[in-house]
Protein backbone atom coordinates (compact mmCIF):
# COMPACT_ATOMS: atom_id res chain seq x y z
CA UNK A 1 0.00 0.00 0.00
CA UNK A 2 2.99 2.27 0.51
CA UNK A 3 3.49 2.35 -3.23
CA UNK A 4 0.28 4.21 -3.92
CA UNK A 5 -0.22 7.79 -2.81
CA UNK A 6 -3.61 9.32 -2.05
CA UNK A 7 -4.12 10.85 -5.50
CA UNK A 8 -3.25 7.64 -7.29
CA UNK A 9 -5.51 5.63 -5.02
CA UNK A 10 -8.48 7.96 -5.51
CA UNK A 11 -8.08 7.72 -9.28
CA UNK A 12 -7.74 3.96 -9.00
CA UNK A 13 -10.92 3.67 -6.92
CA UNK A 14 -12.80 5.89 -9.36
CA UNK A 15 -12.16 3.23 -12.03
CA UNK A 16 -13.41 0.41 -9.78
CA UNK A 17 -16.76 2.06 -9.05
CA UNK A 18 -19.57 0.98 -11.38
CA UNK A 19 -20.87 3.90 -13.44
CA UNK A 20 -24.52 4.97 -13.10
CA UNK A 21 -26.87 3.75 -15.82
CA UNK A 22 -26.90 7.19 -17.43
CA UNK A 23 -29.33 6.53 -20.25
CA UNK A 24 -31.92 4.80 -18.10
CA UNK A 25 -31.66 7.43 -15.34
CA UNK A 26 -32.08 10.27 -17.82
CA UNK A 27 -35.00 8.63 -19.56
CA UNK A 28 -36.82 7.96 -16.28
CA UNK A 29 -36.09 11.47 -14.98
CA UNK A 30 -37.53 12.87 -18.22
CA UNK A 31 -40.69 10.77 -18.07
CA UNK A 32 -41.39 11.18 -14.33
CA UNK A 33 -40.61 14.92 -14.40
CA UNK A 34 -42.73 15.36 -17.52
CA UNK A 35 -45.71 13.52 -16.04
CA UNK A 36 -45.64 15.61 -12.84
CA UNK A 37 -45.57 18.80 -14.91
CA UNK A 38 -48.50 17.59 -17.05
CA UNK A 39 -50.40 16.88 -13.85
CA UNK A 40 -49.65 20.48 -12.83
CA UNK A 41 -50.97 21.72 -16.18
CA UNK A 42 -54.19 19.75 -15.72
CA UNK A 43 -54.74 21.41 -12.34
CA UNK A 44 -53.91 24.79 -13.90
CA UNK A 45 -56.42 24.37 -16.71
CA UNK A 46 -59.03 23.19 -14.26
CA UNK A 47 -58.56 26.29 -12.08
CA UNK A 48 -58.53 28.58 -15.12
CA UNK A 49 -61.87 27.15 -16.19
CA UNK A 50 -63.31 28.29 -12.87
CA UNK A 51 -62.37 31.82 -13.84
CA UNK A 52 -59.65 32.41 -11.25
CA UNK A 53 -57.12 35.17 -11.99
CA UNK A 54 -53.57 34.29 -12.97
CA UNK A 55 -52.12 34.84 -9.48
CA UNK A 56 -54.70 32.61 -7.82
CA UNK A 57 -54.25 29.94 -10.47
CA UNK A 58 -50.47 29.89 -9.90
CA UNK A 59 -50.90 29.72 -6.12
CA UNK A 60 -53.70 27.14 -6.37
CA UNK A 61 -51.63 24.90 -8.61
CA UNK A 62 -48.68 24.96 -6.19
CA UNK A 63 -50.97 24.28 -3.24
CA UNK A 64 -52.52 21.21 -4.89
CA UNK A 65 -49.14 19.90 -6.06
CA UNK A 66 -47.59 20.39 -2.63
CA UNK A 67 -50.52 18.62 -1.02
CA UNK A 68 -50.08 15.74 -3.46
CA UNK A 69 -46.35 15.48 -2.78
CA UNK A 70 -46.91 15.62 0.97
CA UNK A 71 -49.69 13.04 0.82
CA UNK A 72 -47.70 10.59 -1.33
CA UNK A 73 -44.77 10.97 1.07
CA UNK A 74 -46.97 10.29 4.08
CA UNK A 75 -48.40 7.09 2.64
CA UNK A 76 -44.92 5.91 1.68
CA UNK A 77 -45.09 6.20 -2.10
CA UNK A 78 -43.01 9.25 -2.97
CA UNK A 79 -39.71 7.63 -2.00
CA UNK A 80 -40.45 4.90 -4.54
CA UNK A 81 -41.24 7.48 -7.22
CA UNK A 82 -37.97 9.18 -6.29
CA UNK A 83 -36.00 5.97 -6.58
CA UNK A 84 -37.22 5.52 -10.14
CA UNK A 85 -37.41 9.14 -11.26
CA UNK A 86 -34.39 10.62 -9.49
CA UNK A 87 -34.19 14.30 -10.37
CA UNK A 88 -37.52 13.90 -12.18
CA UNK A 89 -39.15 13.45 -8.78
CA UNK A 90 -36.89 15.81 -6.82
CA UNK A 91 -37.05 18.96 -8.95
CA UNK A 92 -40.82 19.43 -9.35
CA UNK A 93 -42.49 21.25 -6.46
CA UNK A 94 -43.85 17.87 -5.27
CA UNK A 95 -40.23 16.92 -4.51
CA UNK A 96 -39.93 20.07 -2.41
CA UNK A 97 -42.94 18.83 -0.41
CA UNK A 98 -41.28 15.42 -0.09
CA UNK A 99 -38.15 17.06 1.30
CA UNK A 100 -40.29 18.75 3.98
CA UNK A 101 -42.49 15.84 5.04
CA UNK A 102 -39.88 13.07 5.02
CA UNK A 103 -37.57 14.46 7.72
CA UNK A 104 -40.54 15.78 9.72
CA UNK A 105 -42.25 12.38 9.98
CA UNK A 106 -38.95 10.63 10.61
CA UNK A 107 -38.19 12.78 13.65
CA UNK A 108 -41.63 12.64 15.25
CA UNK A 109 -40.27 10.53 18.09
CA UNK A 110 -37.94 13.37 19.02
CA UNK A 111 -41.01 15.49 19.85
CA UNK A 112 -43.26 18.00 18.12
CA UNK A 113 -41.06 21.06 18.61
CA UNK A 114 -37.47 19.84 18.18
CA UNK A 115 -38.51 16.80 16.17
CA UNK A 116 -41.25 17.48 13.64
CA UNK A 117 -41.24 21.28 13.46
CA UNK A 118 -37.48 21.81 13.65
CA UNK A 119 -36.64 19.07 11.16
CA UNK A 120 -39.26 20.03 8.58
CA UNK A 121 -36.88 22.45 6.97
CA UNK A 122 -33.66 20.48 7.23
CA UNK A 123 -33.57 20.13 3.43
CA UNK A 124 -36.17 22.71 2.38
CA UNK A 125 -34.73 25.41 4.67
CA UNK A 126 -31.63 26.04 2.57
CA UNK A 127 -33.85 26.20 -0.50
CA UNK A 128 -35.97 28.97 1.04
CA UNK A 129 -32.92 30.81 2.40
CA UNK A 130 -31.24 31.04 -0.98
CA UNK A 131 -34.47 31.55 -2.91
CA UNK A 132 -36.02 34.28 -0.76
CA UNK A 133 -32.65 35.90 -0.03
CA UNK A 134 -31.68 36.15 -3.68
CA UNK A 135 -35.13 37.40 -4.69
CA UNK A 136 -34.82 40.38 -2.31
CA UNK A 137 -31.41 41.15 -3.78
CA UNK A 138 -32.92 40.94 -7.26
CA UNK A 139 -35.65 43.42 -6.24
CA UNK A 140 -33.13 45.87 -4.81
CA UNK A 141 -30.78 45.52 -7.77
CA UNK A 142 -33.73 46.26 -10.02
CA UNK A 143 -34.35 49.50 -8.13
CA UNK A 144 -30.70 50.55 -8.27
CA UNK A 145 -30.36 49.78 -11.98
CA UNK A 146 -33.62 51.47 -13.01
CA UNK A 147 -33.06 54.56 -10.80
CA UNK A 148 -29.69 55.01 -12.46
CA UNK A 149 -31.35 55.54 -15.79
Amino acid sequence: MDKMNKKEYQKYVERKVPKPTYFKNILYAFVVGGIICVFGQIIRNFLLKYGLDEKSVAAGTSIVLIFTGAFLTGIGIYDKIGKIGGAGAAIPITGFANSIVSPAMEFKREGFIFGVAARMFSIAGPVLVYGVGSSVIVGILYLILTKGR
Binding site: D79, K80, I81, G82, K83, A89, S102, E106, F107
Partner: peptide
Protein backbone atom coordinates in the same frame (compact mmCIF):
# COMPACT_ATOMS: atom_id res chain seq x y z
CA UNK B 1 -31.43 8.67 9.50
CA UNK B 2 -28.17 9.37 11.31
CA UNK B 3 -25.84 9.11 8.34
CA UNK B 4 -27.96 9.68 5.23
CA UNK B 5 -31.45 10.81 4.34
CA UNK B 6 -34.87 10.28 5.93
CA UNK B 7 -36.48 6.97 4.92
CA UNK B 8 -39.32 8.53 2.95
CA UNK B 9 -37.04 10.93 1.07
CA UNK B 10 -37.07 10.12 -2.63
CA UNK B 11 -33.39 9.79 -3.44
CA UNK B 12 -31.46 7.37 -5.62
CA UNK B 13 -28.63 5.20 -4.30
CA UNK B 14 -25.40 4.99 -6.24
CA UNK B 15 -24.00 1.62 -7.28
Amino acid sequence: RQFRFPLEYGSQRTF
